[in-house]
């Protein structure tokens, strides 16, 4: 069984249809990149997978390991192993990163019937994961993302991903706003998490990210549907020729 199976998904936002019968199958352990021009529906796909309110599913289905994902709330999806790395991670003043991480981790464990982590065990995991990403202890004591640079926010997303150990990671424009050094740190963090048990859906506008996180499959998203799929070389073709070919195809 595929880990993620999206069939004929149609989604309306503010009265406008954004996704138009989208099909996508991601096998266990695979990394899929979804590329497309602005307005193709990339971020909508990411938000629908995570369960954000305001996205009306008017048709189709999404299954994670055979389970109907659309029937679950955002927190339940997270407990089932879905993780969305936000394009614009939010600042949460007054909630220390440590508190946030611990609350999230224990809530997920509780929902899965696992015992809560002891404080020393939790601290150890955070320290290890933060150390690998170059995140200072001082940043963990501050409010979530408060006063963080763009790069620090993205690193913090990867830290959360590392700690929560999701099965399906959805990366929404993880490369946006990053300089090349920050991009490398983030990409290394993601690459360390690749495993035969974990799948990735990477949403990106540019090919650049795919130099650092090499996908198994590349899809072209156009007007709310996957119109072409291929290997990593498809991304290079897109970078060279743009999306013009699909423009004429659609016309």
């Amino acid at each position: 069984m595929a880990m993620l199976e999206i069939k004929n998904l149609s989604v309306v936002v503010d009265g406008r249809q954004i996704l138009n019968g989208l099909d996508l199958t991601v096998e266990k352990g695979e990394v899929h990149a979804i590329m497309g021009p602005n307005g193709a529906g990339k971020s909508t796909l990411a938000h629908v997978l995570a369960g954000k309110a305001g996205y009306e599913v008017v048709g189709g289905e999404v299954r994670l390991d055979g389970q109907d994902l659309l029937a679950l709330g955002p927190d339940e999806r997270a407990a089932h192993g879905v993780f969305l790395a936000f394009q614009y991670p939010l600042e949460v003043p007054g909630v220390a990163t440590m508190t946030f991480l611990r609350t999230a981790l224990n809530a997920q464990r509780k929902k899965r019937g696992e015992p809560e982590l002891t404080t020393p065990e939790f601290m150890k995991r955070v320290r290890d994961a933060a150390g690998k990403l170059g995140i200072e202890q001082d940043m963990l004591r501050r409010g979530v993302n408060v006063g963080f640079s763009g790069g620090e926010k993205k690193r913090n997303e990867v830290l959360q991903m590392a700690l929560l150990e999701p099965r399906l990671c959805v990366l929404d424009e993880t490369d946006s706003g990053l300089d090349i050094d920050a991009l490398k740190v983030v990409a290394d963090g993601v690459n360390r998490l690749r495993s035969p048990e974990r799948s990735f859906v990477m949403i990106t506008h540019y090919q650049r990210l795919l130099n650092y996180i090499v996908p198994d499959v590349v899809h072209v998203l156009w007007k709310g549907r996957i119109v072409k799929s291929g290997g990593p070389q498809l991304a290079l073709e897109l970078e060279a020729n743009g999306y013009a070919a699909y423009q004429s195809e659609a016309a």
Partner: peptide
């Protein structure tokens, strides 16, 4: 949006609200 961010990390709605109110 903040509430969604917390919930997307697995924190149930009442706890997410409580965290934000405590902040």
């Amino acid at each position: 949006n903040l509430k969604f961010y917390l919930m997307a990390r697995g924190i149930p709605e009442p706890e997410a609200e409580a965290l934000l109110i405590q902040a």
